[in-house]
């Protein structure tokens, strides 16, 4: 099949950047979207041009590296699917597709489609962990955890840290990511103990990293490749308010 890509090219953080159109006449419906870029890059290399820079690693939907906004939608049109798992059979022959990087103040563009997502790491560093020293843990069976809690914690824990939620949110907010992590840890007895300080630290780190405020728009959950439910934000808000209340 033949596709036309309009891709955001930007030489570096200081460059203004703009869309550039490329034809890929030899695409196949079995290709993944990233393989389409591989094919294009191979051609650009052959003609001496710089290939399009984009983030990717596992190519199986789990590392969270891939990060393309395809026709305005982070990770493209297929629900619950990362860019690397999106295949061209979901596009029409002859279609023209716009490809852009994640856009947010907290995610400055490094080059072309590659952005800096270290803000997400800073949120975790602020409190996204259980203070469990290595080497001297209690017996794993000492604390049974109700299956429902364990399952709900797992659901929240499946977040791959891709940042699509931020890319989709009209406010550039990372609430879904932050709340998913806080929910995962807060639901487990091991993590409950320090939930107050955790959520307080995480929301501050979130705001300091230039992410916007959540107004419950719900775009984030719609694009989240792991389908993290919006409910985690409600729970997180309750925890933040509760922490503030108990802190007084």
């Amino acid at each position: 099949m033949k596709l036309t890509l309009r891709i955001w090219r930007q030489k570096g953080p200081e460059d203004r950047g703009g869309m550039v159109a490329y034809d890929v006449p030899d695409a196949s419906a079995d290709m993944s979207f990233l393989e389409l870029l591989d094919v294009l890059n191979e051609r650009l290399t052959a003609s001496g041009e710089e290939p399009v820079a984009f983030d990717h690693d596992c190519r199986e939907g789990i590392c969270g590296a891939c990060s393309l906004v395809i026709d305005g939608v982070p990770h493209g049109p297929q629900k619950a699917t990362t860019t690397c798992q999106l295949h061209l059979r979901h596009f029409r022959d002859g279609q023209s597709i716009d490809v852009e990087p994640w856009r947010a103040a907290a995610f400055p563009v490094v080059k072309d489609l590659v952005v800096d997502r270290s803000g997400l790491d800073r949120i975790i560093e602020a409190g996204g962990y259980v203070t469990a020293p290595t080497g001297a843990a209690p017996e794993a069976h000492a604390t049974p955890i109700p299956k429902a809690d364990a399952d709900a914690a797992f659901e929240a824990a499946t977040c791959i840290g891709c940042g699509a939620c931020v890319a989709a949110c009209p406010n550039g907010s990372a609430m879904l990511f932050t709340a998913a992590k806080a929910t995962h840890l807060g639901l487990l007895p091991q993590g409950k103990v320090e939930q107050d300080t955790r959520v307080d630290a995480m929301i501050h780190a979130h705001d300091e990293a230039d992410f916007g405020g959540c107004t419950n728009t719900g775009e984030c959950t719609a694009v989240c490749p792991k389908g993290i439910p919006l409910g985690v934000i409600g729970r997180f808000n309750a925890d933040v308010l509760g922490a503030a209340w108990r802190g007084r």
Binding site: W8, G72, V73
Partner: peptide
């Protein structure tokens, strides 16, 4: 801003 205006997902 995005060049391709995002369609409403929510």
């Amino acid at each position: 801003k995005y060049v391709h205006r995002p369609p409403v997902q929510g």
